[in-house]
């Protein structure tokens, strides 16, 4: 395999990095489904099929109130979509799901059919991190799927580096923490120490259903049901695991790198 062959091959392949966000986003797999949309108005008052079928008890129907779906707990199994007789819960095929506040993930109230997407960081942090954000990833009992999809963001197709976002080995070199996993009791000390080791100003991103609310293991006594109880979280990205496009959208939204074409809410 000579240098000549390698160079020819490279020239033939050209640039393999996707155009997004300067071009349209790559399509989600057709069966992915995307974010959930809850139209509580269509709900039948006596029906609670979705509540019983949800494996993480993400859906609640308090008496007299409309249905409330917590997208932070959701592991996107789409059982509720299948079982709903009135199609009150549907999938919108939207890859955008990242939010700044935990409450923004609870759907169902009027005006909250879909997620209120994340706003960018305040100006001071945007000036610091907008073009250079170094993240330290901490897997606090994650199953490795969120980690794999974060890893894939560094490959040449997605190329996270072109936004100045990079994953570093030492929290001393990092601006923020990316947490996956429900934060087991055995990882509590390590997570706290990593957070303390980050120089300020720092941000925290909770990636995946586990890091937001405990994921499929919600309620187990061996962990803390997510990172919110231990460190202040600035960005929540739901999914199990979130599609790389969702993660990228969340990060760029945080840094206001998406451009006006995709700004929403």
């Amino acid at each position: 395999m000579s240098v000549h062959d390698t160079l020819l091959n490279r020239l033939k392949r050209g640039c393999e990095t996707m155009a997004y966000p300067k071009g349209p986003a790559p399509a989600l797999p057709d069966r992915h489904g995307g974010a959930l949309k809850v139209e509580a108005a269509k709900c039948d008052a006596s029906c609670s099929a979705c509540v019983t079928v949800c494996p993480t008890e993400a859906i609640a129907r308090p008496a007299g109130k409309p249905v409330a779906l917590d997208l932070g707990r959701c592991i996107f199994c789409a059982e509720c979509v299948t079982v709903c007789p009135t199609k009150a819960i549907t999938q919108s095929n939207d890859h955008r799901m990242a939010v700044r506040q935990r409450e923004d993930l609870v759907l169902g109230d009027t005006g909250k059919e879909q997620v209120r997407l994340a706003q960018a960081l305040d100006e001071k942090l945007r000036r610091l991190f907008g073009r250079s954000l170094k993240l330290r990833q901490v897997s606090a009992a994650g199953c490795n799927a969120c980690e794999a999809d974060t890893n894939v963001l560094g490959t040449i197709g997605w190329d996270l580096g072109r936004f100045g976002i990079q994953f570093v080995a030492s929290p001393r070199h990092a601006d923020g923490l990316l947490i996956t996993g429900p934060v087991s009791k055995n990882m509590e000390l390590a997570l706290k120490k990593t957070y303390i080791a980050l120089p300020e100003p720092r941000i925290v991103i909770a990636l995946g259903a586990c890091a937001i609310a405990g994921g499929p293991f919600i309620g187990h006594p061996q962990h803390h049901n997510g990172a919110s109880g231990l460190v202040p979280v600035d960005l929540f990205i739901p999914g199990c695991p979130p599609h790389p496009l969702t993660i990228l959208d969340g990060l760029l939204r945080l840094l206001d790198r998406l451009g006006e074409s995709d700004a929403r809410r």
Partner: peptide
């Protein structure tokens, strides 16, 4: 790195989820 993503997308083609 890229080809791995391609294989994961093949699984996603089958069931919607890359894993």
């Amino acid at each position: 790195g890229k080809i791995r993503g391609d294989f994961l997308n093949l699984t996603a083609l089958l069931c919607g989820n890359r894993f």
